[in-house]
């Protein structure tokens, strides 16, 4: 059965207040076409669980879609701090669940295994002080390592971007998978945008690239340059000029409203968005 959907249908049924996982890694494979569609559909009060990330959670926060977010790492690296995340944190306008690598890995792994919680080493940080729901004390026997328990992190919906898939939902990665696969195992629903849909024979020829077999995937969406302005597994680089434009536009409410008008509201479909960024072409490059 085909899992291929258009952008709008793929996100249909996501409720306000849902817990949304976001895959990728900082400026790599942020599922931006899906994120822009969430904004178009005016989703509200979302609870985000982003892998280390940049513009995907930031634009959702800026567009007013977010009530709470986990933060393992949200940064614009060489472009500075994440503008809307930073402002929301500094004005306490959203709730932030401070997480570190062990807590998100332990929590996702617990969810993937249907365990109530995971165990992580107590690193003696201030994280338990500001996030006591996540970092819970565990009785320690003499001579035992000091541990904390972290509740399972269940995702209602996970948004990912990868390079190619077939209609059945076999998803292939040309680059690193980061936390995508672990998150998929912890999610009730996995929606993946890919730069191109290919025949099943193509998938079979390089099946070592299929990091997400179809059993883990609920919908695939064809969205060439769907990670733009971030990179996609060697198919295209991050668009530094666009990222800089985003950061600049985020400087004031007016200029950010204009950015959203142009790139989200003003582009009714992903094809319209591609026109706005001058219709870049995917080259014929494959994983080889």
């Amino acid at each position: 059965m085909s899992k291929l959907k258009n952008l709008s249908d793929a996100l249909n049924g996501i409720e306000d207040g849902a817990t949304i996982g976001i895959g990728g890694w900082i400026f790599n494979s942020q599922p931006m076409a899906l994120v822009r569609e969430l904004i178009r559909q005016n989703k509200r009060n979302l609870h985000l669980v982003p892998a280390p990330s940049s513009i995907a959670p930031d634009i959702l926060i800026g567009a007013g879609c977010v009530a709470e977010t986990g933060c393992v790492f949200i940064s614009f690296e060489q472009f500075g701090l994440a503008p809307h995340f930073r402002r929301a944190a500094e004005t306490s306008s959203i709730k932030i669940h401070e997480l570190d690598g062990p807590a998100i890995a332990g929590g996702l792994r617990a969810a993937a295994c249907d365990l109530p919680y995971g165990l992580i080493p107590d690193m003696c940080t201030d994280l338990p002080r500001v996030n006591p729901q996540t970092y819970q004390p565990v009785p320690r026997q003499p001579g035992e390592r000091a541990m904390l328990k972290v509740p399972a992190i269940h995702l209602d919906v996970l948004l990912l971007h990868a390079q190619q898939a077939d209609e059945l939902g076999n998803v292939q990665y040309f680059g690193p998978v980061f936390f995508d696969v672990l998150m998929a195992q912890a999610a009730r629903k996995v929606i993946v945008s890919v730069d191109r849909i290919v025949p099943n024979e193509t998938i079979r020829r390089d099946n070592h690239l299929t990091k997400l077999p179809s059993a883990f995937v609920h919908a695939v969406v064809e969205a060439p340059f769907g990670a733009h302005p971030t990179s996609s597994g060697g198919l295209y680089e991050a668009d530094d000029a666009h990222l800089a434009e985003y950061v600049k536009a985020s400087g004031s409410t007016e200029s950010f409203a204009k950015y959203l008008d142009t790139y989200v509201g003003g582009a009714a479909t992903h094809a319209d968005y591609c026109k706005l960024i001058d219709n870049p072409r995917l080259d014929e490059q494959t994983s080889q």
Binding site: F73, S92, D100
Partner: peptide
């Protein structure tokens, strides 16, 4: 933490 003067990027692997 609940009202920072400057909000940084977060922890990722640094604690571990």
């Amino acid at each position: 933490h609940d009202k920072p003067r400057l909000r940084g990027p977060g922890t990722v692997g640094i604690s571990a």
